[in-house]
């Protein structure tokens, strides 16, 4: 590579000294161009969604939207305060069920008995649960809760959502535990700590931020899902008074209002979509930010 050597043709090393035939180069360029076009094509729908969300949703965005009840069909004004509360309540119920279950299972399969048959079964089940359609969570909650209590309820919706997010929480928690350096555990055992003390005082605190990421991703997922709550929590035009009554949620509101023949309700569906997308994006992005400092 000295300066006074003969100039080497640009593609010398890629062609063994021979010129690549123009036809092959042309084909190369065309395929690259095709690849670029196909990739840009996916930007079109995304941009279209964002533009429509802003154009149709922003004009309605105001304080009323968050404090008022939905308008009856044909009426104007109102908001979807009860739907936001309903979504939060049901996601909360889902977390109460699935966070302990997911994290404790993850501790068992990664800390206590990683090679046991039960651990293998848990991993297999978690994988299968990720693949189960979200509507099946709703069907199960319908069969298990709605049919036994004879009542559409926030509880049923919460149960459906908890099944939906359990695999997310379990698998990300397992990843989080795997991320804790083994030397920490050895050091802890080395000073005579029991497995429980090691897990409780060393491993779990260390894995907590990554676990929180998983939980937040689960929250983002659950708050956007419609199918599990569609026929478990149903919908309501009123504020939530108890967990055992039909409850509104943002996503079902969008679904219901989108098919109504009133332009005001359709605008509200867009506004609700905008709020939902902003909510989901904020939770997703903050989950990423929490996780970042762990990469040391």
């Amino acid at each position: 590579m000295s300066k006074n050597s003969a100039p080497v043709p640009q593609n010398f090393f890629t062609t063994g000294g021979k010129q690549t035939s123009p036809l092959r180069l042309l084909r190369n360029r065309l395929l690259t161009a095709l690849c670029i076009v196909l990739s840009l094509l996916t930007l079109v729908p995304l941009l279209s969604i964002i533009i429509l969300l802003l154009r149709n949703g922003l004009p309605l965005l105001g304080a009323d939207l968050f404090t008022q009840l939905p308008p009856a069909p044909g009426q104007d004004g109102g908001g979807f305060g009860n739907a936001i509360v309903g979504t939060l309540v049901m996601v909360g119920i889902a977390l109460i069920f699935s966070v302990p279950l997911g994290i404790l299972s993850a501790v068992y399969i990664n800390e206590y008995a990683p090679t046991s048959k039960l651990a293998a079964a848990v991993r297999f089940v978690a994988k299968l649960l990720t693949g189960i359609p979200s509507i099946i969570c709703g069907v199960f909650a319908f069969a298990a809760v709605v049919m036994t209590t004879h009542q559409f309820s926030a509880l049923a919706g919460g149960v459906a959502l908890s099944i939906l997010i359990l695999p997310t929480i379990l698998l990300t928690s397992e990843q989080a535990l795997m991320g804790v350096a083994y030397a920490y555990r050895e050091a802890s055992f080395g000073v005579g700590a029991t497995p429980f003390q090691t897990i409780w005082r060393i491993v779990l605190p260390e894995a907590l931020p990554a676990m929180m990421t998983g939980v937040m991703l689960a929250v983002a997922r659950a708050s956007g899902e419609t199918a599990p709550v569609l026929f478990t929590a149903l919908f309501s035009y009123n504020w939530i008074h108890s967990l055992m009554e039909p409850t509104a949620s943002l996503s079902v509101l969008i679904y219901n209002f989108a098919s109504l023949p009133y332009s005001h309700h359709i605008s509200m569906a867009w506004a609700a979509s905008l709020v939902l997308v902003i909510l989901v994006t904020i939770v997703n992005v903050s989950a990423q930010i929490i996780f970042r400092p762990r990469h040391r």
């Binding site: 997911g102 800390e111 848990v122």
Partner: peptide, 21 residues
């Protein structure tokens, strides 16, 4: 180690959940 027992139970519940569904 009661905590181990609790974790074992949670794992079992997770597996049973799919069976239950």
């Amino acid at each position: 180690d009661f905590f181990k027992g609790i974790c074992w139970l949670a794992s079992l519940l997770t597996v049973l959940l799919l069976v239950c569904i």
